[in-house]
Simulated scan of single mutants.
Amino acid sequence: MPEAPTFIFGRMRKPVGGCSVVRMEEPLGLIGRRPGVRVHLEDGPIRLSLHRPEERRIFVWQRPIVRWPADAALLRGLLQHGYLIVHEMDDWPEHPGYAGNGFIGFRGVHAVQVSTPPIADFARRFNPHVGLFPNQLATLPPRRPAPARDEAVLFFGALNRTADAQAILPALNRVLAARPQVRVDVIHDEAFFRGLATARKTFRPLCAYDVYRQALADADVAVLPLADTEFNRAKSDLKFLECAAEGTAVLASPVVYAASVEPGRTGLLFHDADEFERQLLRLVDEPALRATLADAAYAHVAEHRMLAPYAEAQWAWYDGLLARQEELTAELLRRTPELVG
């Protein structure tokens, strides 16, 4: 029996890094290839007139800061237009906009989809209907050969990592002093860039996702530091996947990455600054080690971390929610009585 026609409106946040690509554009793009499924993605004004009368309707809302009572009309409008409302969340929800508005962005929707177990546990405090869909890669570029050059290029580029990176900066500067063939490429973090005790460094501000991915591809080693904090423990291993795809060896903290990186096979881990220094010296001095780690990481992602089967699971979850939409709407209104009326 053919599936009922379905319209998915993906309301993305303004692009920052690759979060809209990985969490919205790629999975919903794959789902939109199904017969009878139509997807519309945008980061502009929310228009409630894009669906067709015969279509089931899903509104996937990426990281919304829902303000009460300012957004009451929007939530009610979505319900009146027959949308199943799904909150997409892939970061720790510590923004004051959530708590300050009574977490209505979690309570006042039909369901919440998230990227990691800690975020799932948080969301279940306010909504029992939580789908966990870890970050995956939609495509892999061809495996690139290791560049033939005398220098070793280190890469660091991330949001909200300044404090984490400062903890390893003295050790990194010791490596830079001992190995003058090392160059460091930094994206976004000006404090980290200024702290590098070398002239062999380049800086770029926050950039488009394809520029970031090319910078990874141009590097030999990516440094992925994360301190053991509640905020960091909720993060995903997406940076490891991106590095693996671009053929870049990783030197990572065990926070988050211990579950993904097999030490000595798909990357290296460090538990403190001294171990960071030792492991980084190995990677700088041993191009063959870098290539072996990068090859194994690429193969691991190709076999285990591609998006297609996960997008199928995400669609099955949506389809199941739509089958219960009337029941879930009644539950939503009991959970969020301020929306009634």
Rank of each mutant, 00 (worst) to 15 (best):
V250A: 15
L196F: 08
V37T: 00
V22T: 10
L79A: 06
T229H: 05
S115C: 05
A311W: 13
A215D: 12
A197F: 11
T229V: 04
G82C: 04
R38G: 00
H188W: 15
V250H: 14
F122N: 00
P225K: 05
D210A: 12
L75C: 03
P118S: 12
A219M: 04
V261P: 07
R290C: 14
L41K: 03
N127M: 09
P337F: 07
A177D: 03
R63W: 07
Y318W: 02
P35Q: 05
L78H: 00
F9T: 09
E151G: 09
R56M: 02
R38I: 06
G36T: 04
P145Q: 09
F126Y: 10
A191K: 13
D272P: 10
G102V: 06
L269E: 08
P134G: 00
G320N: 13
E42C: 04
P96K: 13
I58V: 02
A227N: 06
I31C: 06
G157V: 08
P117E: 05
Y212E: 11
A152T: 15
A215M: 12
R125V: 06
L280S: 08
W317K: 14
L79Y: 03
V112I: 12
T139F: 09
N127Y: 09
F156N: 08
R161G: 10
H81I: 14
D90K: 03
R324L: 10
T6D: 07
L224F: 03
M12E: 02
P205Q: 11
R23Q: 04
L132F: 02
P5I: 07
A227V: 08
G341N: 08
Q279R: 13
I119P: 00
A4Q: 14
G264T: 11
W317L: 06
L41A: 01
L84C: 12
G82L: 02
T229P: 03
D71F: 09
D274R: 15
G77W: 02
R324T: 14
A244G: 10
Y257L: 03
A171V: 05
D274T: 10
A72I: 01
F240Q: 07
G17L: 01
V184K: 05
A123L: 09
S49W: 09
R57C: 08
G131M: 13
W317S: 03
A148Q: 14
G341E: 05
G17N: 04
P205Y: 10
